[in-house]
Design a protein around this nucleic acid. Structure first.
Length: 425
DNA sequence: TCTGGGGTCCTAGGACCC
DNA sequence: TCTGGGGTCCTAGGACCC
């Protein structure tokens, strides 16, 4: 049996833990630059607001109903997520962290059987609420996709916040009531393709012959069908496992035509990505840089391009990676365009601990060891005294580094200066 | 005026090899 | 008219997730 634990409106709930006055009101959390909605409270959803919607479309309605929009505070959310996952580890031998706000708990000898699933799930909800302040919904079923369905279709709509899909007739009824594009892993495009072939509901999809599914879609969707039949075929992975690629990108608060500013941005994103690279003890074998102009200005000429550069040897050394990414940028930059976004991708990652020692060139090897020590020192200083305490000069302090964040809450749990203060009254 | 930032997996097709 | 058969590796792009 699998259980999916999913925090309700996670980012909004994190904010509410420290500002209970936000409870019961329409609240949204915004993406970087206060661009889009990335989390909506139940009350905000009731107003018709949706994740992904641009903020300027939602602002009026939100104000009208006494709502509030908060800038994203990822330091807070990341820390709250870690607290949530630690709490869940008390309830199952195996916890697979699937995203910042979801985890699968896997059945084991410590889990109850039969009719006790609801009690077990209920205990999890109570404990998480007490220890972290976060509301969660829980779905229990024989496979990951069914657990997700139990969570989305039943738990989220019930007062208890718990959905159980174990009995085959109950499962089948739930599948009949679920449109095929509401299945986890099937979105609009695939949904249309399946419906054109007559598969309108999750039940029809699950019962379709394998060759038909395979002809219409890929292997991924065939596995989904098996999951809906109650056979686990998916390994949802764990976000704490080492990443295979590391990505850092931003849309600029103000577009730029200047090479120097673009170079600063690319250098900065490379440094950020390299920091995460070292945190997971990896090295990158290649760097990919992409830039593009804005998407929403039809009068501005469009240009977008990407370049992939392979390094002579895998590296986690920020200056080495930066030199590669700036070289890549040089090959794609075209003067005169108003660039609105840059991306840096570190690829071909390998384990830094297995980097072969260069026995034949002791000098080169000594240089490599020194560079690792330097990077470690930089990371430790920035961890202790704040992210931008030391940085490489090419990153600059340019305008592109700043984001619009009109309404960011304090980093209540990760910054001494911003701890909440309790006063006796 | 104002539209995010991460990831994963799969497939098709091109280039190349013998 | 008729133009092999088997492989690998790489990349772009599609589709999905939160």
């Amino acid at each position: 049996m699998k259980a999916l634990v999913d925090a309700d409106s996670f980012y909004v709930s994190c904010e509410r833990v420290f500002r209970p006055l936000l409870n019961g009101r329409p609240v949204v959390v915004l993406s970087n630059n206060d661009g889009c909605l990335i989390s909506c409270s139940r009350e905000a959803k009731a107003l018709g607001l949706r994740v992904g919607q641009p903020y300027f479309e939602a602002a009026g309605l939100l104000t009208l109903h006494g709502g509030e929009a908060l800038s994203a505070n990822f330091s807070l959310y990341t820390d709250m997520s870690a607290r949530l996952m630690r709490t869940l580890e008390r309830f199952a031998p195996r916890v697979q962290v699937y995203s910042i706000d979801e985890a699968f708990l896997d059945g084991g000898s410590r889990l109850p059987t039969g009719g006790e699933w609801a009690d077990w799930a209920s205990a999890i909800r109570t404990t998480v609420r007490r220890d972290t302040g976060l509301p969660v919904s829980i779905g229990v079923a024989p496979s990951h996709v069914l657990a997700k369905l139990a969570c989305e279709k039943q738990a989220k709509h019930s007062a208890e916040g718990i959905g159980i899909l174990i009995d085959p007739t109950v499962i089948f009824r739930a599948l009949e009531e679920t449109p095929v594009e509401a299945v986890w892993g099937i979105a609009e495009r695939l949904g249309q393709r399946l419906k054109r072939a007559g598969l309108w509901t999750a039940a029809q999809f699950a019962r379709a012959p394998d060759p038909l599914i395979r002809r219409l879609t890929s292997l991924t969707e065939l596995r989904l069908a098996w999951e809906l039949r109650g056979v686990p075929t998916l390994d949802p992975g764990d976000i704490r496992a080492p990443r295979k690629t590391i990505f850092c990108s931003r849309t600029f608060a103000v577009p730029t035509r200047r090479w120097e500013e673009l170079r600063e941005a690319v250098a900065t994103y490379t440094a950020r990505a390299a920091e995460r690279l070292r945190a997971q003890r990896s090295e990158a074998g290649a760097v990919r840089v992409a830039i593009r102009t804005g998407l929403f200005h039809p009068d501005e000429p469009f240009h977008g391009d990407a370049a992939f550069v392979r390094l002579p040897a895998p590296s986690a050394h920020t200056p080495t990676l930066t030199a590669a990414s700036i070289h890549a940028l040089q090959t794609i930059y075209r003067p005169g365009f108003a660039y609105a976004r840059a991306e840096v991708l570190l690829a071909e990652l390998s384990d830094a601990r297995t980097h072969p020692t260069n026995l034949f060139d002791p000098e080169d090897e000594a240089k490599r060891v020194r560079s690792i020590r330097l990077m470690n020192a930089m990371d430790r200083i920035n961890a202790e005294y704040g992210r931008d305490t030391v940085w490489t000069a090419i990153c600059g302090r340019g305008v592109l580094r700043r984001l619009r964040q009109a309404n960011r809450s304090p980093r209540y749990t990760t910054c001494w200066e911003e701890l909440p203060i309790a006063r006796a009254s």
